[in-house]
Design a protein around this nucleic acid. Structure first.
Length: 790
RNA sequence: GCCGAAGUGGCGGAAUUGGCAGACGCGCCGGACUCAAAAUCCGGUGCCCGAAAGGGCGUGUGGGUUCGAUUCCCACCUUCGGCACCA
C-alpha cells in the first residue's frame, strides 16, 4: 500500500477528466427525453483569487452535480466570469495597465484554482462578460428592451457616488453609502438609462409564489417591491387651476387632512412658488433641502416652508395650506401628501412645530368621528366608502403603489459594455443597427472619470455617422453596469458559441429554468430581482418559454474571518496554500463539514488536520478491505446493514434534505465499524459503499480507491441503492420510561403488540423499583418506547 | 421602530413527523507502540453528589400545552440579517 499522496492523485485524475471531457455535456438531440438538471452557482467576479467563501459555494454545487449525474441525470454545470466592473478599472488606474489585462490575468489564475479544486465543470461553455462574443448579445438584448419601451433614458434624481464618480442603482446604496467603496451617496439630477422594472412589479411579486426559494429571500424581495393598496385622491389648487394627486393607505382619515405637503424635489415647487409672496423662501428652502445628503435628511428634526398657496380638501371642501418639507420623499407615491396630524406621527410632529390644526377623525374604537356622514363607521369600511364617495365626484380612486423604482444601470465609467445608441442632431436617439453589433469597447488614454465618462474622451470613436440619416452623430459614452451582464449570463451557457443570436430558444427552453441556484443572500434584491425581470421581459418578446429563471435557490452561509465575511472586497484566506499543504480533497470535505451550509462559518484552520487524518484512515481501511474476498451477494451481517443504512442516510441527506455536513459523519461511522470488523464478509462491500457515497465530496481520492477495489470510472458509476428489507431489524431496543424518565432499555422482538410491550416494560426490575407496586397508565410508541405514568 | 433568522458540552455541531439530548469530529485525560518524539492504534470524556451501585440537574430566560418538549404556543433577553420620515 502506497502512502496517501493527495498531490499525485489529484493531478492524475484531473488530467483524466480533462482529457476525457468527463463533465462536458452535449446539446440535446431531437426527441431527447433524458432527465436533465441545470446546476448553477453565481459566477465569480474575477478580482484577485478565490477565497474560502467561493470554495464553499462551488464545492456545494459540485456535490450536487456528482450526485445528480450518478443518479442518471444529464447535468449542465457551467462556469463563467462577471468580468466587467469597477475593481479592475480602479486597479488599472492605481497600478497602470489595461483593465482587460488585469481581468484576464485574474481569470486565468482563478480558472487554475478551480481546476486544482477538481470541480466538475463543463469548461467548454465558459463565458466572460467582457468578451465581445458575450457583450455583443448584451447589447442586442438591450436593443430589444429599447424597442419594447422597457429601456429608456430620462432625467431623474439618481444616486451619485462622489468617489467612484458614477451613478448607482437604488439596490446598491446601502445605509446611504456606496456598496463598493462606502462613500456617502449624493442625490443628483441627471439624465440616465433605466430599465422599466416597475412595469413588472405585480408579476415579480406574484411569481414568488411559484418558486422554491428561502422564505427570507422572498420577504426581502416583497419588501423591496413594496406593494401597498390605497387610494389616489385629488386636491385642487383653485388659484392655479391644477389638481394635485396624493397616494394614501388611509383614505378614511381624509376629513382630518388639515394641511398639504410637497417634496422639495417636486416640479410642483416652482409652479406653486411662482407668483407667491413666499417665492424666494420656498425656492431657497427647496434648493437647500434637495441638496442635503440623505443621511442628514433622515434626522428627525422637521423643517419646511409655507408656499402661500392653499389646496381644497376634497372631503371637507376646506382650504388647507400647502407646505414644502423634506420629510416628504419624491421617490415614494406622488411626491406630495395630505397631512393628517391626528393620526400620523410625522404629520403630528410637523403640525406641532408649525402650529397647524390637529383634528382627530378616528376614535379609540377605530370608528370615524368628525367625518360627516361617515361618522360611526369602522375605519376599514369607511376607507372604502369614502374612496367610492370621492370617486363619484371625480376626486379619488382606489390605487396601488409600489416602492420599487426603475432600475438605473448606466455608468459613467470605462470598464463595461458600450451602449449601442447614437445621438443625431436631426434624428435624435438612434439605435445602432443589429448588423453593426457589437459596438466594441475602444481604448482610451485615461480611465479616470473627469466629469464625463472616459469613453467621451476618445473623440475618434465618439464621432460617428447617424445610421438613419448619415449626418453627424455621437455615440453614447456611458457604459452598462455589470448587473446587466449577470441578468442573462445563465441563458448564454445554454448556447455559448452561437454567433447568430444570444441563444437558441429550443436550447434555453430545454435547460431552463435553473433547477438549483446557489449563491449569497446579498444578491436578494439586486441580481436575483433583475434576472427575474429580464426573463419575464424576454418571455413577453417570445425569446424564451418560461417566466422564472431560478426554480430553486439556496444561500450558502458566509465564511467569516476576524468577524468579517470573506468577500471579493474583503479578501481572506487563499485556498492555494491549503491545496499545497493538504490537497483539494481534504479542503472540500473540511469546508462542507463545518456545519449546515446555509449558516455562517468562522474561519479557522483547526480541523483541516483532522479531515486529512480521516482521509488517510479511509485510505488505509479501504486498502485493507481490498485485500479481503469480494463480499457475497445478499450478505446481511451488521456491517452490511450499516453500509445499507449509510447509503440511505447519505442519499436522503443530499437529495431530500439538502444538507451536506451529516453525510460525512455517516461515512465516518461506517469506516469506524469497518475498522472494528476487518474480517467481516461484508468488509469489501462496506469499503465500496464508503468510497462510492463519499465520491461527490472527495472525487480524487475516491476515484483512486475505487481502482484499488478493482473498479473504474466511479464518476460515471450509478449511485448505489440500498436494500430496505435489511434496514428492518428482527429486534429493537425498547426504551422504558417511568413518568417520562428513562429507567431501562431492553431488547425485544420487533412488531410486538402494545399489550406485550407494556408487559415487557413491567417485567423490568429497574422499572418495578420506580413503580413500587402503584397503578400506572401506559403510553406506547410501537417498537420504540413505553412510558409508564404513576 | 417594523419584518425575519438563530441561541444545545471546553469547541464545531447532531437529534428528519412531539418519543433515548449530545451522533460525528476537535480538544482534553489515560493506555499501547517507541531509547525518545512524531505518526498510528485502543479506552474514557455534559454538569453535580457518590468509593460504587445509583440519584439529581441539563438544549438563552420565565411561563404554558402534553403521559412526554431542543422540537408546539405566549412573554422576555442576546446575537445576526433586511427595511426604515414609505404617507
Amino acid at each position: 500500500m502506497d502512502r496517501y499522496d493527495a498531490k499525485t492523485i489529484e493531478q492524475k485524475w484531473q488530467k483524466v477528466w480533462a482529457d476525457e471531457g468527463a463533465f462536458h455535456v452535449d446539446d440535446p438531440q431531437p426527441g431527447d427525453d433524458d432527465p436533465r438538471f441545470y446546476m448553477l452557482e453565481m459566477l465569480p467576479y474575477p478580482s484577485g483569487t478565490l477565497h474560502m467563501g467561493h470554495v464553499l459555494n462551488y464545492t456545494l454545487g459540485d456535490v450536487v452535480t456528482h450526485f445528480r449525474r450518478r443518479n442518471g441525470t444529464k447535468v449542465l454545470r457551467p462556469m463563467g466570469f462577471d468580468s466587467f466592473g469597477l475593481p479592475a478599472e480602479n486597479a488599472a488606474i492605481r497600478e497602470g495597465g489595461h483593465p482587460r489585462e488585469i481581468t484576464e490575468r485574474n481569470i486565468a489564475s482563478i480558472e487554475n484554482q478551480m481546476k486544482r479544486m477538481g470541480w466538475a465543470i463543463d469548461w467548454d461553455r465558459e463565458v466572460s462578460a467582457h468578451e465581445p462574443t458575450f457583450y455583443h448579445w448584451t447589447q442586442w438584448l438591450f436593443l430589444r428592451l429599447f424597442e419594447e419601451g422597457l429601456a429608456y433614458r430620462k432625467a431623474a434624481p439618481v444616486n451619485w457616488c462622489p468617489n467612484d464618480q458614477t451613478v448607482l442603482s437604488n439596490e446598491h446604496v446601502v445605509d446611504g453609502r456606496c456598496w463598493r467603496c462606502g462613500f456617502i451617496v449624493e442625490v443628483r439630477n441627471m439624465e440616465q438609462w433605466f430599465f422599466k422594472i416597475t412595469a413588472y412589479a405585480d408579476e415579480l411579486l406574484a411569481g414568488l409564489d411559484t418558486i422554491d426559494w428561502p422564505e427570507r429571500t422572498k420577504k426581502i424581495q416583497r419588501q423591496h417591491i413594496g406593494r401597498s393598496e390605497g387610494a389616489e385622491l385629488l386636491f385642487r389648487v383653485d388659484e392655479l387651476d391644477i389638481d394635485i394627486p396624493v397616494f394614501t393607505t388611509r383614505a378614511d382619515t381624509v376629513f382630518g387632512a388639515t394641511f398639504f405637503v410637497v417634496a422639495p424635489e417636486s416640479t410642483l415647487v416652482d409652479t406653486l412658488a411662482e407668483g407667491s409672496e413666499h417665492k424666494e423662501d420656498v425656492i431657497s428652502y427647496a434648493r437647500v433641502a434637495a441638496a442635503r445628503p440623505t443621511e442628514e435628511r433622515q434626522s428627525r428634526e422637521k423643517s419646511g416652508v409655507f408656499t402661500g398657496r392653499y389646496a381644497t380638501n376634497p372631503a371637507t371642501g376646506e382650504q388647507i395650506p400647502i407646505w414644502v418639507a423634506d420629510y416628504v420623499l419624491m421617490e415614494y407615491g406622488t411626491g406630495a401628501i395630505m397631512a393628517v396630524p391626528a393620526h400620523d406621527d410625522r404629520d403630528r410632529e410637523f403640525a406641532e412645530k408649525f402650529e397647524l390644526p390637529i383634528v382627530p377623525v378616528v376614535d379609540e374604537d377605530g370608528k370615524l368621528i368628525n367625518s360627516a356622514q361617515f361618522d360611526g363607521q369602522p375605519w376599514r369600511d369607511a376607507s372604502k366608502s369614502i374612496v367610492a364617495w370621492l370617486g363619484d365626484h371625480g376626486r379619488g380612486k382606489a390605487s396601488i403603489n409600489f416602492r420599487l423604482r426603475d432600475w438605473s444601470w448606466s455608468r459613467q465609467r470605462y470598464w463595461g459594455s458600450p451602449i449601442p445608441i447614437i445621438y443625431c442632431d436631426a434624428c435624435g436617439m438612434v439605435p445602432v443597427p443589429d448588423e453593426q453589433l457589437p459596438v466594441l469597447l475602444p481604448d482610451v488614454e485615461d480611465y479616470r472619470p473627469k466629469g464625463e465618462p472616459p469613453l467621451a474622451s476618445n473623440t475618434e470613436w465618439l464621432k460617428v455617422e447617424c445610421p438613419r440619416c448619415g449626418g453627424p452623430g455621437k455615440r453614447e459614452a456611458d457604459t452598462m453596469d455589470t448587473f446587466v451582464d449577470s441578468s442573462w449570463y445563465f441563458l448564454r451557457y445554454c448556447d455559448p458559441h452561437d454567433n447568430q443570436r444570444p441563444f437558441a430558444r429550443e436550447l434555453v427552453d430545454y435547460w431552463m429554468p435553473i433547477d438549483q441556484y446557489i449563491g449569497g443572500i446579498d444578491h436578494a434584491k439586486g441580481h436575483l430581482l433583475y434576472s427575474r425581470f429580464f426573463v419575464k421581459a424576454l418571455n413577453d418578446m417570445g425569446l424564451l418559454g418560461f417566466r422564472e429563471p431560478f426554480q430553486r435557490l439556496f444561500h450558502q452561509g458566509w465564511v467569516r474571518q476576524d468577524g468579517k465575511r470573506m468577500s471579493k472586497s474583503q479578501g481572506g484566506v487563499s485556498p492555494d496554500e491549503l491545496i499545497d499543504q493538504f490537497g483539494a480533497d481534504p479542503i472540500r470535505i473540511y469546508i462542507l463539514t463545518r456545519g449546515p451550509a446555509d449558516q455562517d462559518i468562522d474561519w479557522s484552520p483547526d480541523g483541516i488536520d483532522a479531515t486529512a487524518r480521516f482521509i488517510r484512515r479511509l485510505w488505509r481501511v479501504v486498502h485493507e478491505a481490498a485485500a479481503r474476498p469480494v463480499s457475497p451477494a445478499g450478505v446481511d451481517t451488521p456491517l452490511a446493514v450499516k453500509a445499507h443504512e449509510t447509503i440511505a442516510r447519505v442519499t436522503d441527506d443530499i437529495d431530500r434534505r439538502f444538507v451536506f455536513n451529516t453525510p460525512v459523519a455517516a461515512v465516518m461511522e461506517l469506516i469506524n465499524e469497518l475498522s472494528k470488523a476487518p474480517d467481516d464478509p461484508a468488509a469489501r462491500f462496506a469499503a465500496e459503499t464508503a468510497v462510492s457515497v463519499l465520491q461527490p465530496y472527495t472525487p480524487h481520492v475516491c476515484e483512486e480507491l475505487w481502482g484499488v477495489l478493482g473498479h473504474e470510472r466511479l464518476w460515471d458509476t450509478p449511485w448505489p441503492t440500498y436494500d430496505s428489507s435489511l434496514l428492518e431489524s428482527d429486534t429493537v431496543e425498547l426504551v422504558l420510561q417511568v413518568n417520562g424518565k428513562v429507567r431501562d432499555r431492553v431488547v425485544v422482538p420487533a412488531g410486538l403488540s402494545e399489550d406485550e410491550l407494556v408487559a415487557r416494560a413491567k417485567a423490568s426490575e429497574k422499572v418495578q423499583a420506580h413503580i413500587d407496586g402503584r397503578d400506572v397508565k401506559a403510553f406506547v410508541v410501537p417498537d420504540k418506547l413505553v412510558n409508564l405514568v404513576i
